[in-house]
Simulated scan of single mutants.
Amino acid sequence: QIDIQNMSQQNKDFASGQAQAATSGGLAVIAVSCGDGLDSLFREVGCAVVVSGGQTMNPSVRDILEAVESAGGDDTIILPNNKNVVAAAKQAAEAKMGIHVVPSNTMPQGVAAMLAFNPEESVENNLESMTAAIADIVTIEVTKAVRSTTSGNVKVATGQYISLLEGEIVLAGDTAEQVLESALSQSGLSSGHIVTLYLGEDADLEGAKGVSQRLQLEYPGIQVDLIEGGQPHYHYLASVE
């Protein structure tokens, strides 16, 4: 089974400690997430509350404020995890004292921010370290085109798979794995990097394993983790760090 257990052992041990410590502090973190696996992952790494939201179901300011109330922290950090949610998170922060936003634009950025979270540190130190963590993550998204379009030099036909590298379309192709590998090759990947593949609800497990094997052959020393994200719309999310 592909699940959170496939995170690196170092990350698992660290996340477990964070989750235990977060239950006793006055600083809470709220993450916006979409997908059963990602929801569970954010809880595992210490989020007090996970708010449902994503590409087509953005939470409102009221939803976020209700989550803050439920979290019960003296201070609360919000991880929007989608560029379309950042504005609502910032409006919530303006509406109530003690709310802070780490402007994560993707789910992988949010995970990285949580792994940098330390509930025993001050709000200011956490905001600094979590913001630095999201800057170190390269995000790739693989989805299916719902209409024909042209983006830069890339022509996309309806129904093709497309890969987005840091939000920009870099390839259209016939398989999700093909466009994923192409985007990874353009991400500056090299030996020593850690690649995490989050499998969406429509992802192919055997296809993901094949990508992992080919990456490890091409880049000796690379680490590839597979996690069942369960996210809709995106066959794969990937992070490179």
Rank of each mutant, 00 (worst) to 15 (best):
N82W: 07
P119E: 01
A113L: 04
V85Y: 05
T106K: 05
N118M: 08
T139S: 15
I134L: 10
T106A: 10
M130A: 03
A95C: 10
A89R: 10
N125H: 15
M114H: 01
V86W: 09
L79K: 00
P80N: 00
F117T: 07
Q91W: 14
E94F: 11
N81Q: 08
V111G: 07
Q109Y: 06
S151P: 05
D136V: 12
N105W: 14
A145T: 07
P119V: 02
N82T: 05
A92Y: 12
E121W: 09
I99N: 02
I78C: 02
M130R: 02
M114K: 05
T149L: 15
G98H: 09
N84D: 14
A89N: 10
L127A: 04
V101P: 03
V142N: 04
V142L: 06
S104N: 03
A116R: 03
M130T: 00
P119G: 05
Q91I: 14
A145Y: 04
E124Y: 14
S129K: 12
V123A: 01
A145V: 08
V85E: 05
N105V: 15
T131A: 12
E141G: 12
I140F: 06
I99C: 00
N81T: 08
P80Q: 00
G98L: 08
V111E: 08
K144Q: 09
S148Y: 01
V85S: 07
A133V: 08
V102E: 00
E124R: 15
E94C: 09
S104M: 00
V146S: 14
T106D: 04
H100T: 05
K144W: 00
A88E: 08
S122M: 01
F117W: 10
L115S: 06
T106W: 02
N84G: 13
G110N: 00
V111W: 09
T139L: 11
A113Q: 03
T131W: 06
F117E: 02
N118I: 08
T106Q: 00
V102W: 04
D136H: 14
E120M: 15
N125Y: 13
A87N: 15
A116Q: 01
I137F: 05
L127D: 06
K90Y: 10
I99Y: 00
D136L: 12
I78E: 04
T139D: 11
T149I: 13
N126C: 06
V85H: 07
V146F: 15
I99L: 04
N118C: 11
A145K: 06
S122I: 01
V85L: 08
E120P: 07
S151F: 11
M130D: 01
V123G: 05
V138A: 11
A113W: 04
P108I: 08
A95Y: 09
H100M: 07
M107G: 12
P108S: 06
R147W: 09
P119W: 00
N105R: 14
H100V: 10
Q91C: 14
G110H: 02
G98I: 08
S129Q: 13
N84R: 14
S122L: 05
A92V: 13
N126I: 04
E141Q: 13
M114F: 01
